[in-house]
Measured scan of single mutants.
Amino acid sequence: TTEYTFTDDEEARRAIEELKKRGLTFRYEKHGTTWRVRVD
């Protein structure tokens, strides 16, 4: 499991789109302004 942290909404959304394109399994949660994206 790899975890990424983003504080920029645009950056987080781009990363999420990219992961979807690659067909990877991931989860994300947003805490205030911080996004945590975990890739299995």
Rank of each mutant, 00 (worst) to 15 (best):
Y28V: 15
E17T: 09
T34A: 06
E3L: 13
Y4E: 02
T34N: 06
T25W: 12
Y4C: 14
D9I: 11
V39A: 02
T34Y: 10
R38Q: 15
G23T: 02
G32T: 02
K21I: 08
T5G: 02
E11S: 14
D8H: 05
Y28F: 11
H31V: 14
R38E: 14
E18N: 09
L24W: 07
T25V: 12
A12F: 15
E18T: 08
V37T: 00
E29Q: 07
R14V: 09
A15H: 08
T34L: 13
E29V: 10
E17F: 09
E10N: 12
R14N: 09
D40N: 11
R14Q: 09
W35E: 01
R13Q: 11
A12E: 00
F26H: 03
G23Q: 04
R22T: 08
T34M: 10
R27S: 15
A15V: 13
D9M: 07
D9W: 15
L19T: 01
E18G: 07
E17Y: 10
E10S: 08
H31G: 03
I16N: 03
L19H: 01
G23Y: 03
T1H: 12
R14L: 10
A15M: 15
V39Y: 03
D8E: 05
R38A: 11
E11W: 05
E3M: 12
W35I: 13
T33E: 13
A12V: 06
T33S: 13
V37S: 00
T7P: 03
D40A: 10
V37D: 01
L24I: 12
G32R: 02
D9H: 07
K20Q: 11
T7Q: 09
T34F: 11
V39N: 00
A15K: 10
G32K: 03
R38N: 09
Y28G: 02
W35S: 02
E11T: 13
I16E: 01
T1M: 12
D8W: 03
R13I: 12
E17H: 09
T25H: 13
R22G: 05
T25C: 12
T7V: 07
G32L: 04
K20C: 11
R36T: 15
G32W: 02
R14Y: 07
E29L: 06
R36N: 07
A12M: 13
W35D: 01
G32N: 04
D8F: 04
T25L: 09
Y28K: 03
G23F: 03
E18F: 10
V37C: 03
D9P: 12
F6H: 01
G32P: 01
K30Q: 07
T33W: 04
T5P: 01
T5V: 14
T5S: 06
Y28N: 01
E18V: 09
K30R: 10
T7I: 07
W35Y: 05
W35K: 01
W35A: 02
F26L: 07
L19M: 07
F26I: 12
T2C: 14
E11P: 03
F26W: 03
E3W: 15
D8Q: 04
L19R: 00
E10K: 09
W35P: 00
H31K: 11
F6V: 01
T34W: 07
T25F: 11
V37W: 01
V37I: 15
E18P: 00
D9Q: 08
W35R: 01
E29D: 07
R22K: 12
T2Q: 11
